[in-house]
Design a protein around this nucleic acid. Structure first.
Lengths: 368, 368
DNA sequence: ACCACTTGGTAAATGCATTTACCAATGGCT
DNA sequence: AGCCATTGGTAAATGCATTTACCAAGTGGT
């Protein structure tokens, strides 16, 4: 279409002014006294020629590229990573920034390479993301580099964005208790005894803490805790099948994630139990899966998109260090049965606490 | 850690040579007669100082940024988009390039903005991707811009990468026929009569063409074709439930995607039919879902990752125009029942044709 | 002794936008 | 008339790497 990009010099020439004038005017610098005439001529010329500044050239002087890097261990495996990226993309767009995405597959060598590659391109900041929230190793960086940890923490880089798992854990329990469950609640995927020295992830620890403390607050106990390392559907199936065959008093399942819940559904169905009627299930993540199940799975969602947005916002606003906890939306579908409570006081209390959690955090609107 | 990046001038100074010498030597220019001494000193200095060229500055003269853009309608909704991105990232990494990811949400205005944003940053090329393969509108571009269409086509930009849906459609039919099915095969999700004037997507059309032509080749016919616009689990459930209640001779379901198949599983199970025994199901996509189901779903996979890789390879190799068809892997799990064939000749033929498809394309290894 | 190469380099221009330092002309004031 | 401020600009330096044009010293041949 057109042979070469127009440069600032072209605009200046057409406007009959110096490049200095053109630059100053187009960038709207204050305290620079050019005539209204000059302003008009420069803007007209720029529009006429379709002038767009060469960002690389500009960066040479300003050290700002309007580009940020998103370095993640994994981008495609789960919808979680994509959600983080999507949120980051949205917010970056709003701020006129562009996002350079890198995948490290968790390999430290690859991480070093990724960092160098983006530093070579003078990015304005780096977001380090992980799928399994954890303390992430980050190599030395020039100290001026702005960094935000997304779903991760790092002692040297204090700004991090995490889901509010503690509140999420509480909400899951409240959901069950508010529906009248006070007995026969089992945990699928975790057992403190068995996993004493096992580090899963920083956020899962908080999820469990919230969950247990809420059980304690409400005076409830678990009838079983089934532990497994991987949280895949077949694990959920095996654990649930075994549990249901072993005892008959199970009325509600707290699953550590939706994939486990998916397996649990299958085990229940096979045993003639209808989820949402004969047995309740609540879990975490709000995977795509959760909406496919019948009845729909009630779950505490991971607010990926909001987290991604928030990370970019923090990065570009030079926020001070600290953890930003993003509320987890409670997504109610139909997997929780309403039962007549053994102790209705508990159910009422749970209902109140749940309402507080939701109001306090605006959790429902959080991941639109 | 360190105050400022080292520049080429720093390296030159430390080596006691001119920046010219340093540049020429570090870039390994041929026919430039510097002493072995000089080479050694420059390399030593560069290593000592940890010199890395400023890519933006370099681009000013070379017009190459070692960056490419990936502009897609959607990035997070499906694993499909993430797979494309992952493949692109992998191949770009190998080539020392970095990927700038943009999402347009299918809005033309946003697409124009995205293109301008990446052009402002002098990318070496652009990949336009879509989730629903279709002819994609692309605004005018400077004619030197290199473009590859990924899962999309465009009359002005001839290079495109698509899944080989025609072969995929054939394979699905062969799979069923080879297992002995020759009667009672139903199609879930599509009906030519009902959808005569409906454009779904370029690739789905090919999928159906392959499927029908293979049925014809083998002398098979369908007992039913159930149409619906969305291919979500609940559609699969409704269609299958209604079909099974209507007729009792259905033995195999060809589902247009895995989500439909997921719904179909539920309908079958509810009716006491065990998938992989009483009824066979085969579908398309190889969603995460497919491996979660019990029994595992046999499906013709979408080779996202390979497609993403291929797109970058084509972009960077200045390939001539044309469609690159990427083989779809046939992923055999356990949803197809082996039945004694009514006509064993047909089953043998299907087996041979399937083997040819797989051998000819290397489809199995295609999406590792 | 002189010319023609070869060897081993360097100075300076270039790409593009930003920014600092400076300048000419005009008007106002005393 | 002389001086200062203001108005409305511009020239040139800058950031960094690449690249073209050029040069000085040495070598070999005659």
């Amino acid at each position: 279409m057109f042979a070469k990009r127009t440069t600032l010099a072209d605009v200046a020439r057409m406007a009959g002014l110096s490049p200095t004038a053109a630059s100053l005017i187009l960038n709207g610098k204050p305290d620079t006294r050019f005539s209204a005439e000059a302003h008009a001529r420069v803007h007209a010329a720029a529009a006429e020629l379709g002038y767009r500044p060469n960002i690389g050239a500009r960066a040479l002087r300003t050290d700002r590229t309007l580009s940020i890097a998103f370095i993640s261990d994994v981008v495609a495996t789960t919808r979680f990573a994509s959600g983080l990226i999507q949120g980051a993309l949205e917010e970056a767009e709003r701020a006129g920034h562009v996002v350079l995405v890198m995948e490290t597959r968790g390999e430290p060598a690859r991480e070093v390479e990724a960092i160098e590659a983006v530093l070579d391109r003078q990015v304005d900041g780096i977001i380090f993301g992980t799928v399994r929230a954890r303390e992430l190793y980050v190599p030395d960086l020039p100290e001026a580099t702005k960094v935000v940890m997304l779903n991760a923490t790092n002692p040297r880089h204090g700004v991090s964005v995490l889901p509010d798992e503690e509140a999420g854990g509480r909400a899951a329990v409240d959901l069950l208790a508010a529906a009248g469950h006070s007995e026969g609640i089992a945990l699928i995927g975790q057992n403190d005894e068995a996993e004493r020295d096992l580090f899963r992830s920083a956020t899962v620890d908080r999820r469990i803490r919230g969950l247990r403390s809420e059980l304690a607050q409400l005076g409830l106990t678990l009838v079983a805790e089934e532990s497994c390392w991987d949280w895949e559907p077949h694990n959920g199936y095996d654990l649930t099948a075994e549990l249901l065959d072993r005892r008959t008093d199970v009325r509600a399942l707290l699953c550590m994630n939706d994939r486990l819940a998916f397996g649990a559904y299958q085990a229940c169905t096979e045993r003639g139990l209808t989820v949402g009627q004969d047995i309740s299930i609540v879990s975490f993540d709000n995977d795509e899966l959760a909406s496919y199940l019948r009845p729909g799975l009630t779950t505490i969602g991971l607010p990926h998109v909001v987290m991604g947005r928030e990370a970019v916002r923090l990065l570009l606003s030079n926020a001070g260090p600290g953890e930003r906890l993003i509320p987890m939306p409670v997504v109610e579908r139909s997997s929780i049965a309403r039962v007549t409570p053994a102790r209705s006081g508990t159910a009422d209390l749970a209902t109140r606490r749940l309402a507080e959690l939701r109001a306090g955090t605006g959790a429902d609107a959080a991941d639109a």
